[in-house]
Design a binder for these strands. Structure first.
Lengths: 203, 203
DNA sequence: GTCTATATCGTGATAGAC
DNA sequence: GTCTATCACGATATAGAC
């Protein structure tokens, strides 16, 4: 996404856009080259092969995606506020990059799944001390006692699905793009209210 | 899914399985023919082209998918029970066909989106009188006053996402397949509790 | 209906001129 | 570095034998 004007960066940006919206098998090397304003040969000159270029894009996108998620965990604020802000930031990020979750899920289902080792997201999360914060909040009776995986599933389900399933939901309800955008703004409020109310019943 | 032994049915079943798991561009006609135990020529003899066969499979899958969703709406039971049963049935259906939502969403993003006209799901839903039931429940103060699209989004988010994002969630939490299955059973309880609690605050 | 053989085209990748 | 031209391969689709 960086606006660098080197040839290499132009190719990578074009590849990113096309891979995300069409997937690896849904596009051709020539298409990427054309989007970048050049020839196929240059793509292979800089990135050796389509597959190699794809791997680079996937790593880059996944890094951006996971970092955007755990970024809020690092801040030193109360858990209940973190929860609100997390939902807020997720909707903000996904409004800008609505195709990324689908891209990651789809391509993750095929590949050899060794990307996450490379990204050491686990270390990043542990560093954020979010687990301790949840445990403490549950101990003092502020947060409902639910395992961490289910908490993550609840949060991600209600943040990501509205973006992932946009074409399906739009079609079922005959909604235009701008109507669906407005719906999302409303929906975020409901989601926040529901999740906070469920995870923190005393508030 | 019908176990018919005609050649045509064998091809359609094979195509269904492969298209759902790999997508249109992720497989070849030969692969489908081989899975069906025959030659490429026969596939085109019965279905004219790969694209035509794909359209037939998509229509069939979407019909099955939408009917499974609105089936529960037709029954003549109280709304709160319908809500519980809907979640139950969705998890049951998705456990059997975990790849279908992703398939529909992905392929829906590309195509010309005229499938739903063909399926007249709208008529089916209206026939089920679910809208009137929701309106009535909201009027008597039983159900929280939320628009129908957001209600649908809440339900689908929490039912579908855990299946759609399985590879991602599994990877982040280093869960094996059987561990994730157990997680889903637990999660369904939380989801039911949370949604019922939010949509029907007085209960 | 079912097969083998083949026509036609598009794709990934590279060689080689500039 | 950047281009044109080309190779090698695999894909869809079909013709034609049985």
């Amino acid at each position: 996404m960086v606006k660098d004007h080197t040839t290499e960066a132009k190719i990578k940006d074009a590849a990113r856009n096309i891979f995300i919206s069409k997937g690896f098998n849904g596009c051709t090397s020539r298409e990427i080259a054309k989007e970048a304003g050049m020839n196929v040969a240059l793509v292979n000159y800089y990135f050796k092969s389509k597959g190699h270029l794809f791997d680079i894009v996937v790593s880059s996108v996944m890094k951006e995606f996971t970092l955007s998620m755990i970024d809020i965990f690092k801040s030193n604020i109360p858990l209940i506020n973190k929860t609100r802000i997390f939902i807020d930031k997720e909707y903000e990020f996904l409004s800008k990059h609505p195709e990324i979750p689908n891209f990651i899920i789809t391509e993750l289902g095929k590949k050899d799944k060794s990307f996450f080792e490379l990204l050491d997201i686990n270390n990043e999360i542990k560093e954020a001390k979010i687990f301790e914060q949840i445990e403490e909040s549950q101990k003092i009776g502020e947060m409902r006692k639910i395992d961490i995986v289910s908490i993550m599933l609840l949060m991600m389900s209600n943040c990501h699905f509205p973006f992932i399933a946009k074409p399906m939901v739009q079609m079922i309800n005959s909604l235009k793009d701008d109507e669906y955008e407005k719906q999302l703004v409303i929906h975020k409020q409901y989601v926040t209210e529901m999740i906070i109310g469920y995870l923190f019943p005393t508030k």
